[in-house]
Design a protein around this nucleic acid. Structure first.
Lengths: 111, 111
DNA sequence: ATAGTTAATCGTATATTTGCGATTAACTAT
DNA sequence: ATAGTTAATCGCAAATATACGATTAACTAT
């Protein structure tokens, strides 16, 4: 892909928000997060039984969530337990919450 | 792309959340939303002057935000005024806020 | 009618995402 | 040592996303 020479500058917050948003930009990843969040505690690959998708695909989505820091996993061979990463979860709450809760004094009549 | 025969079922909320998240999954779109939200009122294509990106690229990002319903535009030839779509903005706030504010009684020691 | 302005759209190139099955890695149990 | 289990990773195909320049569309002003 062609890249502009004068790259656009983004603030750290903008990049973090975008990466979190990207992580939850697929419905199955939202579903996975909901499942993990609703567990009393951790969760493992029962996801594969609950969600009708190939194991490799689910593993890929878990990796996406891991990379974004939204979940963490504990290897417990041959299983792996995943759970919400509270720290990033809070960051997400703060950043996204702050973003959408900003009061908009928009008085325009756009349509 | 191959599609699984037994498609995964998503709730309306999951799909709406995902589409909003996808809309803000690129830092330049967050930047654009911030600019629009901080204006006293509407805003037009000064974006092209502020953001060092091709006009066509910015137009494409605006379309993505429009499609997600996060902004609305008013044609005012030869210009177009854009502003935040308050309704979707509120939906985003409610859905994402509710999602990340759910209290997680996670007591696991995953790492 | 002609020129100018703004923004959408088209065409193209490249990168990334998404999905699958097959394989591999890292273990446990026998 | 061998077999079994779970989940990551590889290799592939197809869809989407991102970026650009060029063109077009829809107007206004002259």
């Amino acid at each position: 892909m062609k890249r502009s020479l004068s790259a656009v500058e983004y603030s750290g917050e903008e990049e973090i928000m975008a990466s979190i948003a990207k992580a939850i930009s697929h419905p199955v990843r939202i579903k996975i997060l909901k499942l993990l969040a609703s567990q009393q505690c951790c969760f493992t690959g029962e996801l594969t039984e609950i969600i009708p998708m190939a194991q490799s695909t689910i593993s890929q989505h878990l990796k996406a969530l891991l990379d974004a820091g939204l979940i963490q996993g504990e290897i417990n061979p041959p299983k792996v337990r995943y759970c919400i990463n509270l720290e990033t979860w809070l960051t997400a709450s703060t950043l996204l919450g702050g973003f959408f809760n900003a009061d908009l004094t928009c008085r325009c009549e756009c349509r």
